[in-house]
């Protein structure tokens, strides 16, 4: 019926469509398989919060056989009114949020200084900054502890040893990351802004920050997660249960001598990571929207 030319054309089209479908199926298969591997532990953990010790150690089935709410009941324990999980989480975020804000501000300033300007001693200072990445924190803990003790900051109710350093861009990871992203931003826009009469500060806020938004959001997320997960810092610097953050609270009942109920520990862990999951879920679109707002396109 149809002539050969249209036939071959439609065949090519069909081929293309088939290819598309195959690649689509492939893509989703990969995503779903990987997703299962990624999520299984969380699912298992949710199930385990409803199991007793015996079942947790003897079964890998995420669905509890004899579901019990004991874990959640025990998780609500308040240690004589001194502290409970909600208070502990409030404690956590009462220093994590300032830490995130301070880290972002100080890191952006530092990254801008290193990334866009040349000055005397630039390379030397840059090397010094990078070097801060290379020494494991654990050997710095003792000298730092002695230092903070001299400042009188141990046991500070404002978490000074945790919060104050973030005012001064002590997180090299983030400075370095922002510099790398900054270097991928063409200088044209800034030059244009400069011609329009913007000073450096205005350029930073109006041009650079929007361009860097995806990176800034990533930094904020990471700082949020890492600080929320920090155990050693609070353990060394906080010494009143009423000020304990969630990481310490979660482990309060883990006494290897007397034994303990894992369902409680897991329930507490789960509750304490929920904000992190929610924050990530809510913030992720910033990677996308940050870009369109910055107007890289075009």
């Amino acid at each position: 019926m149809a002539n050969t030319q249209t036939k071959s054309l439609s065949q090519a089209e069909a081929n293309l469509r088939r290819q598309r479908i195959i690649s689509l199926v492939l893509r989703y298969t990969v995503l779903i398989v990987v997703g299962v591997i990624m999520l299984y532990p969380l699912v298992w953990m949710v199930g385990a919060t409803f199991k007793n010790n015996n079942e947790i150690f003897t079964s890998m089935n995420p669905i509890p056989f004899n579901p019990t709410l004991d874990g959640y009941k025990a998780a609500m324990e308040n240690y004589g009114g001194a502290i409970n999980i909600w208070k502990a989480m409030l404690n956590t975020y009462s220093y994590v949020i300032p830490e995130v804000i301070f880290t972002i501000i100080s890191s952006v300033l530092t990254a801008y200084g290193f990334g866009r300007f040349k000055f005397k001693g630039h390379d030397l200072l840059f090397s010094a900054m990078m070097a801060m990445l290379f020494l494991p924190q654990v050997v710095l803990n003792v000298p730092q502890y002695i230092m903070f003790n001299n400042f009188g900051w141990i046991g500070s109710r404002l978490y000074l040893p945790l919060v104050v350093p973030t005012l001064f861009a002590t997180e090299t990871y983030f400075i370095f990351m922002l510099i790398q992203f900054l270097r991928n931003v063409p200088k044209d826009l800034e030059e244009a802004a400069s011609i329009d009469g913007c000073n450096v500060m205005q350029t930073l806020i109006q041009i650079i920050v929007p361009m860097l938004m995806p990176a800034i959001v990533s930094c904020a997320l990471f700082k949020f997660m890492w600080s929320s997960n920090d155990f050693m810092g609070p353990l060394l610097y906080v010494n009143t249960p009423a000020k304990y953050p969630a990481t310490i609270f979660v482990k309060l009942s883990m006494d290897s001598d007397a034994g303990f109920n894992w369902n409680k520990i897991l329930a507490l862990s789960l509750i304490s990571i929920l904000p992190s999951i929610i924050v990530f879920f809510a913030a992720q679109n910033q990677f996308v929207e940050g870009i369109s707002a910055g107007g890289v396109k075009g």
């Binding site: 100080s106 801008y112 200084g113 010094a128 900054m129 020494l135 710095l140 000298p143 230092m147 001064f168």
Partner: peptide
Amino acid sequence: KENMGFLFIIPWLIGFLVFKAYPFASS
């Protein structure tokens, strides 16, 4: 103009000298 960048890294430099240099040197 030549040292503008330096102004931006001053917070970092203070943090470096106060919080990092001593533990680093002592280790």
